[in-house]
């Protein structure tokens, strides 16, 4: 074989196969070892037991899943769904008109407006949260400017504001892309046929931008749902999300198996959402 390949030029098909291997294997190997294997480890740990003082004991058990369906943990999952859901909804309500407005701007202004929306996203995540601690805390800026003693920090509302602040640009971008792509003639046609602006929006613009809406919602929901830093810093420990629960299991309770089970639950919720999203996108 070797002598043949030396003497004869490689067949195109074999060359292609070699090229496919050369291009794909380094990256895929890397992702298999450092992405798929870790995920498999999380999956497998969910079936093992915690050692008396932490660590994993490799004995098969399903008790982690029995623990998971406890109302306590389901309520935390529910609370996370609620907080991430409200955040996503608010982001959509604010993000849609903003994206719509940007899409109507002259070309140069479009770029500037988009950069302005995305710019804060490129600053340090923790620092953006810190800015809100400064604003909302008891002796904070809002209270000292208003001369009030409002309790703004350490409640669910503060968490929602923090999440919204962090992920709003992720809603605006896909919406902008979807609205930008619309053919303005469609709306004109609708208007010419006597439809009001609102009807045009409801019957033409909105349905055509649904894929963008779904992408934006997913982009905001996923990082909000799995977050633990924002509830930690803005929630004052009075409200917890599934991310906090996972972190606690790994770092405080040293209960890796149950932490892994909660991580699986988190992934499961996201997979269901992804499926709903792609189903809805196909129908739209």
């Amino acid at each position: 074989m070797t002598s043949q390949t030396k003497t004869r030029p490689a067949s195109p098909a074999r060359g292609r196969r070699f090229a496919a291997f050369a291009f794909l294997s380094p990256g895929l190997t890397y992702l298999i070892v450092l992405l798929l294997v870790p995920l498999a480890l999380v999956l497998s740990a969910a079936f093992f037991r915690r050692g008396r003082f932490g660590g994993i004991i490799y004995e098969f058990t399903t008790e982690n899943f029995t623990r998971l369906i406890d109302p306590l943990y389901l309520s935390v999952l529910g609370n996370s769904l609620k907080i991430a859901g409200i955040t996503t909804l608010l982001a959509l309500l604010i993000g849609y008109p903003t994206a719509y407005f940007i899409a109507q701007l002259p070309r140069n202004w479009k770029t500037i407006a988009l950069v302005a929306i995305v710019l804060p996203f490129w600053t340090n995540f923790i620092i953006r949260i810190y800015a809100w601690i400064m604003l909302l805390s008891g002796p904070g800026i809002v209270n000292s400017v208003l001369g009030t003693q409002l309790e703004l920090l350490y409640k669910d509302g503060a968490i929602v504001v923090g999440l919204l602040y962090s992920y709003l640009p992720l809603m605006v971008l896909p919406l902008y892309a979807a609205i930008e792509r619309l053919d303005p003639q469609l709306r004109e046609a609708s208007a010419n046929l006597g439809a009001s602006a609102f009807t045009t929006f409801r019957k033409v613009t909105l349905p055509l931008t649904i894929p963008g809406v779904l992408t934006g919602c997913l982009f905001v929901f996923v990082p909000s749902f799995g977050n633990f830093v924002i509830p930690d810093l803005l929630g004052g420990g009075k409200s917890i999300m599934v991310g906090n629960l996972i972190r606690t299991q790994f770092l405080q309770a040293r209960d890796e198996p149950f932490g892994a089970t909660l991580t699986l639950a988190l992934i499961a919720v996201l997979i269901v959402l992804l499926m709903v999203q792609s189903w809805a996108a196909r129908r739209a």
Partner: peptide, 24 residues
Amino acid sequence: ILDAVALMPAVLPDLVLGIGLLML
């Protein structure tokens, strides 16, 4: 499938990746 694997780390919540790698 390969497409999905290549895109996965970009959409996976950071917490999941962090914990998976720690366990690895």
